[in-house]
Design a protein around this nucleic acid. Structure first.
Length: 199
DNA sequence: TATGCGATATTCT
DNA sequence: GAATATCGCATAG
């Protein structure tokens, strides 16, 4: 994508909440063998240290170990029987925390995304974490990948100026539901969830 | 537009 | 065995 370059780890905030906010407006790129799929990040959720809603809350296990990698690594998991979710680890190595990518605005590879999602509605391609992962072809194979290395999945600079950033409670959780750890770009049509959460 | 519910598999209890 | 960081279809207003 023109004008987008890879972000180095040294350019990313280490702290979970700062990283979640920083990511809004940046580009997420998945380079596959034939096509490059990319989008603008418009919605994220932070899962911080000591957060009962975080998968890392009960300590390191075989399935959540990627959350304990140094900030900038992918954590991919599967839930509700048929959805993958993409997260990025935050904090230093050994600390379990991360950020869920909740929604993108599609940029490149829209035709391929439509095929992956089985719909022609552009608004439904990447609005929501499960949809986003399906559209970009994210699977468990990418779990543990370093997004700041020279790999197929990486973070890029913003393609245009980022709008004002809103904040709200997180979506779809029961524990620690009151904490305002969800970030989104105001007014962007690709933000997921009920409208009252994204004024 | 808003709300309700079933599908489905991995993980931890 | 229960719960789940969801989605898509159904129904009602």
């Amino acid at each position: 994508m023109q004008g987008v370059r890879r972000l180095r780890r040294s350019e990313l905030p280490v702290a979970t909440v700062e990283l979640a906010r920083f990511l809004i407006g940046k580009t997420l790129v998945h380079e596959r063998s034939r096509r490059t799929l990319s989008g603008r990040i418009v919605e994220t959720e932070a899962y911080v240290v000591g957060d009962a809603a975080a998968h890392s809350f009960r300590g390191l296990t075989a399935s959540n170990r990627s959350l304990f990698l140094e900030y900038g690594h992918a954590y991919v998991y599967f839930t509700y029987g048929n959805h993958f979710m993409l997260n990025i680890s935050s904090e230093r190595e050994g600390v379990g925390a991360g950020i869920l990518f909740r929604a993108l605005e599609p940029l490149e590879g829209i035709k391929t995304m439509k095929r992956h999602r089985g719909t022609d509605r552009v608004l439904d391609l990447t609005r929501g974490p499960g949809r986003l992962a399906a559209a970009l072809g994210i699977t468990k194979k990418l779990d543990g990948l370093d997004l700041c290395a020279d790999g197929p999945l990486w973070l890029g600079t913003a393609v245009r100026e980022t709008g004002s950033i809103g904040m709200s409670v997180r979506i779809g959780i029961t524990r620690e539901a009151h904490r305002e750890l969800r970030f989104y770009e105001r007014g962007n049509l690709f933000v997921s969830g009920p409208k009252k959460l994204s004024p």
